[in-house]
Computed example of a mutant assay.
Amino acid sequence: MATVRKARADEVGQVLDFYTRMIDAMRGTEFDVCWEHDVHPTQAFLRASTEAGEVLAVVAPEGGAAGSCFAAALVLNAEADPGYGQARWQVDAAPDEVLVVHVLATLPEFHGCGFARQLLEGAIAAAREAGARALRLDTFTDNVRAQRLYESCGFANCGVYEDFYPHLGRAGVLYEFAL
């Protein structure tokens, strides 16, 4: 079984490599996340998140003794997209009582292994440990596979918001997990 853990500060290179590989592998597929190298997510964001201990990763079973091969990863912090202010959240929580999941992704060769579910369960546990009242995230309206995952993990669909991703001209679906 794979291990979910925080990426260490000395693993910035592995985190950057993971997201580079994931973006390249997903581009043009039905799972294209529409992310661009050093635009979203930026290297600065990933570096700062790793150094702050905000990156949760699944270490691939064949990652070896060093455990540096990430199969899936996400960033967990309190930074909410400005669009979160328009949402009809179920939990009435102050911004400092909420954690947000960002850039959740799995390398295509590990799709179907349950790693995204393990990551979400790890994020839920980390949010509880941090004393948060809610865990929130967003996704594209056409990312039905992710929506099924979030809902099966207990996240509540809090609505579709048109032009949630204005730079892409796309709507988003917002989700919340009450802690």
Results as ranks from 00 to 15, higher is better:
V101E: 09
G64W: 09
L76Q: 02
H111A: 10
L99H: 01
W89S: 11
D81T: 04
E54I: 01
A146P: 15
T141Q: 13
Y84S: 12
N77C: 08
G154D: 05
T141N: 12
V58S: 09
H111C: 10
R148S: 13
T50S: 04
P41Y: 06
T42D: 08
G85K: 14
A25L: 10
E121H: 08
R88K: 14
L137R: 08
A93F: 10
G114C: 06
D92T: 15
T106F: 07
D96L: 07
A134F: 09
E151H: 00
L99Y: 03
R117D: 09
A126N: 06
R128K: 15
A52L: 08
A52G: 11
M26P: 00
R117F: 03
Y150A: 03
V91A: 10
E129D: 14
L56F: 12
V33G: 12
G63V: 08
H111S: 06
E79D: 07
S152E: 04
F110S: 11
F45K: 09
S152Y: 03
V58W: 08
L107I: 03
D138W: 01
R136W: 05
T42K: 11
S152D: 05
D32H: 11
L119H: 03
E30K: 14
G67I: 06
L137G: 07
V39C: 06
G131Q: 02
Q118M: 13
W89L: 14
W89D: 09
T29M: 14
D81N: 11
A130I: 00
T50N: 03
A123D: 08
S49E: 02
A116R: 03
N77Q: 01
R117I: 05
E36G: 03
A146M: 15
F110P: 01
H102G: 12
T141K: 12
S68N: 09
I124F: 02
V58G: 08
Q86D: 15
F70Q: 08
E151Q: 12
T139F: 01
F155L: 10
G63E: 07
E51P: 00
